[in-house]
């Protein structure tokens, strides 16, 4: 796994040698790579018994706007703030 891949997840291991349960990332990848099972089946994408689940097109307020904004680590004037993107 390259640094580029880690960047994809916006993750860095704080200590690259850190391991828990003795199984570090390379062991997990080895497990994935070492076993190459065969199957002739199509991918099963959905496990629930449901199909065609839709809802009526009706608008209503959640009445939770203030609560949601109050969870943001940084917010002002009703906007959630982040460092400048451009």
């Amino acid at each position: 796994m390259t640094d580029q891949d880690k960047r994809l997840y916006r993750l860095t291991m704080l200590d690259p040698n850190e391991s828990s349960h003795g199984a570090d990332l390379s062991e997990a990848i080895d497990f994935i790579n070492s076993y190459s099972p065969d199957t002739a089946f199509e991918p099963c994408v959905h496990i629930s018994d449901q199909r065609n689940v839709t809802r009526q097109d009706e608008a209503h307020s959640s009445h939770l706007q203030k609560e949601i904004l109050s969870l943001a680590p940084k917010a002002a004037d009703d906007y959630v703030l982040v460092p400048k993107t451009v």
Binding site: D57, E58, A59, H60, S62, L64, Q65, D78, Y79, V80
Partner: peptide
């Protein structure tokens, strides 16, 4: 549509910021 694609919030354009939001 009246409501958003995956929740019941209004889709109205031009409302005050962060008023048509839900969890």
């Amino acid at each position: 549509t009246q409501s958003k694609i995956f929740c019941g919030c209004s889709t109205k354009f031009g409302d005050a910021p962060n008023t048509n939001i839900c969890p």
